[in-house]
Nucleic acid binder design. Structure first.
Length: 946
RNA sequence: GCGGGUGUGGUGGAAUUGGUAGACACGCCAGACUUAGGAUCUGGUGCAGCGAUGCGUGUAGGUUCGAGUCCUAUCACCCGUACCA
């Protein structure tokens, strides 16, 4: 028999694909487009492990399938090349991050090439390439030159706003801003450039703002919220503290409503949608003005429970609120200052873990506008400065946090809901009938009364009342915060910004990109400037329009350039657009490419990006959509989150204080320490003892206590990592079994979206299958045994069953069930001795998405001179699936008793009659009474007897 | 606390969506071929029992002729989030 020589086959077809540019795509108006995309990888130094290609394989199968169905498929790949590891390596070794990054990219490419993906490599992007980040810088400038109009829910050119200011000042403004400013046209016109620039920053979509940032001293930079977990940095695990800094920010919050609404239009999993909804955190509530008693100012609180205004017994301000200083009375000043000092000394982490009640009385009182009651104003860290107005009204009876605070400071608690017992804890539920509003005997402003209403009605009534009496207004708040857009790093996109007499000014669009300068040292400067402070050639010559030496700065025509760089998500937010037209030097993408490719139809990647990349990308795309660049409001129509591949670690058990290792089954008889052992010297949990001795010098003299002549290792499921010695490299699998087997096995392992452990043990099954599949086509002498004979009905049925199953499975990403279908079909066809071209040719096409190399080889052997990629996906013909008879389970009172054959088109009545007459039935019917008969044609027959 | 998800053999996982639970594969057992097997092929393999048969989808109820699937309660684990007023 002709052997299945995967090495030869795979090498041959890899070369063939490269030579013929089989996977090159271009816009083709005659065919429908389909855009498949994977989240591009950060090329880390460790290379790919067996978990990385999972999503690539899944989407590659889909891409190939769509191509076979006649779509013009875009399936690109690139690299998210900016990142911390390369920079930290650079700091340690002095090696330029570009050098290590490029070396890693080459390694990735080599590994990827072995797996047989249908990527169009001519479209590769690298975020660190000037030709790429040109457009990152460009988009930033566009955001700088835009503001967000709330009324039309759209980005608009900043000139429009300037014009408005010149004519109307801030009157009737309804735009997204950092804080509400009030000024007249005359005031605006009288301001100098610096002041105007400062005011405009309040409205730009990319703006500079004083904000509390997550400062990570260990990394020497600020981090985005999603880069911090449990108060420490995701990368490196360094502590993170809150710090006020002047930073570039993106006004993502302006798009909160659109980001929320858009979720209803896309085909993503409920869990990711839910995560994004929570992250955006829309909440409808009421803002109420609170007058400070005996002082001449008021403040605003935000509440979603306007119905509880009669139960307010105190107010609370966030410690960071600027109101604190204003309200604090002279005799409480000392106590307040001490408290603020205490709060500042607490790290983010401490505040998150420790929820004990702390706070201090400010000395001032706020007036409840509805009851006229004076309530004390406290300051406490349980109120957050960054949400709402940084001030709340406290209703201890119906909010557990207020309740804890009231108990601690002995403040009154007024229950407002009928039947609610608040003696032990607050009643937070939003269900019940309102009472005590107002408390009997007391009067409220304008006779306002809520008693007897449900909570929902009461909220509505209060909103109406507050608005009508000008006490406050209805307000929607979002938890989503603006994204901090600067990093104090070297290895990132430089900002195309220079400082002209302190005014941030954009480098002209036609001068982009401005390239990352060379530096001597990748660390921050001695004066604490970011690493770009080390760059010599880093000043902007306005007249000559070029980057010049820093020593030439004269503040007249030559100015310093921004020292910050952009964060990781800058380059990854619009890369899917760039793939459409990756080499365009005139525009991010041409109108033609954008119109043809529209957006990503299928996006595959990890769910860990739910609140980072997938929010930023949607935001970025919406902005570009407003500009007319992107043609779809949502960038990723369907999202599939592939699960993580975990490692399966192996252990050996060393008897304490010896160099003797005992096999798993016997370890309980000794005092042993489990030790991780490299999974590559273990097969089916049996240790290769010689390889173990050679693994490390200290084990060279190891002795073993065997069971049944073998050393059996223990195992555990852990994260795949070097330190656990459980990393399985795809190259090794490809070397031993071939790429087609690897592809098949990765899909066979389980549902794509599920996390699952890697276990190389099972791979033999897939390898055997491919050998059997191969053997369908070749006889013992190694000749193609496919002929033009008429196929048997059985073979056609097998084939069409498979077409049906596989076609349906691919559409829903259920590859793990189509591979068993192939296995079953293969053994059926082998048994049927199927030789007909009518069966075996479509079969080769069916397997092409999964195992492209073997499919190409067979396709060629069948006499085709074009790639199997250009074949046609076999069409299902249901007529082959029609059964003449069906074998059904016969049940008596729901219990299956025997099976029986029925004509396929038998009616319920016929089936029941047939069962009643059957010989086997008699013993179940004897002496019993038939209560009921159920028969579903093609499904089941059930006779209920008593 | 809140939100989302998952519980099926020794293992990974199937189940036409309410109709013969355990497809397929690994592992294991037996056999064949072999100097050999960590190669290949054949058969067996949910549990208990010699057997007929009984019991079986985290647990306890319910709906139904019939439940892994639907409903109620409960437990366990995983993921996300964290004082959001």
């Amino acid at each position: 028999m002709k052997e299945y020589n995967f090495r030869e086959i795979e090498q041959k077809w890899h070369q063939n694909w490269v030579a013929n540019k089989t996977y090159k795509v271009s816009e083709d108006e005659s065919r429908k487009k389909f855009y498949v995309l994977n989240m591009f990888p950060y090329p880390s130094g460790a290379g790919l492990h067996v978990g990385h290609p999972l999503g690539y394989i899944a989407s590659d199968i889909y891409a190939r399938f769509k191509r076979l169905q006649g779509f013009n498929v875009l399936n690109p790949m690139g690299y998210d090349a900016y990142g911390l590891p390369a920079e930290q390596y650079a700091i340690q070794t002095g090696q330029h991050p570009e050098v290590t990054t490029f070396a890693n990219i080459d390694r990735y490419r080599q590994q990827l090439d072995k797996i047989g993906f249908c990527f169009d490599w001519d479209r590769e992007v690298r975020t660190c390439a000037p030709g790429y980040y040109h457009w990152t810088q460009w988009a930033f400038q566009k955001m700088f030159n835009s503001f967000f109009c709330v009324k039309c829910q759209k980005a608009q050119p900043i000139e429009q706003l300037v014009k408005w200011f010149e004519e109307h000042g801030s009157a009737d403004l309804n735009v997204a801003c950092s804080e509400e400013l009030t000024f007249t046209a005359d005031e605006w016109n009288s301001w100098d450039d610096k002041k105007k620039s400062d005011v405009l920053m309040n409205y730009r979509i990319a703006f500079m703002g004083e904000t509390m940032v997550n400062w990570c001293a260990g990394l020497g930079t600020v981090l985005a919220n999603d880069e911090v977990v449990d108060g420490v940095s995701v990368r490196g695990g360094f502590p993170v503290e809150q710090k006020k800094m002047r930073q570039w920010c993106l006004r993502v919050s302006a798009y909160a409503q659109r980001l929320l609404d858009g979720l209803d239009t896309i085909d993503w999993s409920d869990s990711i949608k839910e995560t994004q909804k929570n992250w955006i955190g829309r909440s409808e509530g009421t803002e109420v003005q609170i007058k400070v008693a005996d002082q001449d100012f008021d403040f605003t609180i935000f509440t979603t429970r306007a119905d509880t205004m009669f139960g307010v017994t105190f107010f609370v301000l966030a410690p960071e609120s600027e109101l604190v200083d204003k309200v604090t009375t002279a005799d409480q000043r000392g106590a307040v200052d001490e408290y603020i000092k205490y709060v500042k000394g607490r790290t983010e982490r401490e505040r998150m873990i420790d929820h004990t009640v702390t706070g201090v009385f400010s000395g001032a009182y706020g007036v409840n506008p509805i009851t006229g009651d004076k309530c004390p104003i406290y300051i406490s860290e349980y109120v957050l400065a960054g949400y709402g107005t940084g001030a709340i009204m406290a209703v201890p009876a119906h909010d557990s946090r207020d309740y804890a605070f009231a108990k601690h400071f002995n403040l009154p608690i007024i229950p407002l809901i009928e039947g609610a017992d608040v003696s032990e804890e607050s009643y937070d539920a939003k269900e019940g009938i309102v009472m005590n509003s107002p408390v009997e005997g007391k009067t409220a402003f304008d006779g306002f009364c809520l008693n007897g209403l449900t909570i929902k009605e009461a909220i509505k009534a209060t909103k109406k009342f507050v608005t009508e009496h000008n006490l406050g207004r209805v307000k929607v708040n979002y938890r989503l915060r603006d994204a901090i857009f600067s990093r104090q790093r070297y290895w990132g996109e430089p900002f195309p910004v220079y400082y002209k007499n302190g005014i941030p000014t954009m480098i002209p669009e036609e001068c982009l990109p401005i390239e990352l300068p060379q530096v001597e040292d990748f660390k921050p400067t001695e004066t604490g400037e970011p690493p770009l402070g080390n760059a010599k050639v880093w000043a902007w010559d306005e007249q000559n329009k070029k980057v010049v030496d820093k020593s030439l700065v004269d503040e007249k025509t030559v100015f310093p350039i921004e020292l910050y760089t952009m964060p990781g998500f800058a380059g990854s937010s619009a890369y899917y657009l760039r793939y459409m037209d990756p080499n365009n030097s005139e525009a991010l993408i041409s109108e033609k490419a954008a119109t043809y490719w529209q957006n990503v139809d299928l996006y595959v990647g990890g769910s860990e990006h739910a609140t980072g990349h997938l929010i930023y990308s949607r935001f970025w795309n919406k902005f570009l959509f407003d500009l007319g660049i992107s043609k779809k409001e949502e960038p990723f129509q369907k999202l599939v989150n592939q699960g993580m591949i975990q490692g399966r670690s192996n252990f050996v058990y060393r008897i304490k204080d010896t160099n003797t290792f005992v096999s798993l089954g016997l370890k309980d008889q000794y005092d042993v320490t489990p030790i991780h052992v490299d999974v590559n010297i273990v097969k089916n949990d049996v240790l290769d003892t010689e390889a173990f001795k050679a693994w490390r010098p200290e084990y060279a003299t190891a002795e073993f206590v065997l069971e049944d002549g073998k050393y059996v290792c223990g195992w555990a499921i852990e994260k795949m990592s070097k330190s656990m010695y459980n990393v399985v490299n795809p190259d090794m699998i490809v070397e031993n079994y071939g790429a087609d087997t690897l592809r098949l096995y990765e899909m066979f392992l389980g549902p794509v979206e599920q996390s699952k452990p890697w276990d190389t043990n099972g791979i033999d099954g897939c390898f055997r299958f491919l050998k059997k599949f191969w053997a369908l086509y070749w006889d013992k002498e190694g000749n193609l045994q496919v002929d033009n004979s008429e196929p048997s009905a059985d073979s056609m049925k097998t084939l069409h069953k498979l077409i049906k199953k596989v076609t349906a499975d691919i559409e829903v990403f259920s590859y793990n069930t189509s591979i068993p279908a192939f296995m079953v079909a293969t053994s059926e066809l082998a048994q049927q001795k199927a030789r007909s071209r009518q069966v075996l040719e479509p079969l080769a096409v069916l397997i092409a998405p999964f195992a492209p190399h073997i499919a190409e080889e067979l396709w060629e052997a069948l006499g085709h001179d074009t790639s199997v990629c250009d074949a046609q996906w076999p069409e299902l013909d249901e007529k082959y699936l029609v059964e003449s008879s069906v074998k059904l389970a016969v049940q008596f009172s729901g219990k299956v008793r025997f099976t029986m054959e029925f004509p396929a088109d038998a009616t319920s009545e016929q089936m029941i009659a047939q069962v009643m007459e059957a010989e086997e039935s008699q013993k179940y019917l004897e002496g019993k009474q038939v209560v009921k008969t159920i028969a579903v044609p093609g499904r089941i027959v059930n006779i209920v007897v008593k």
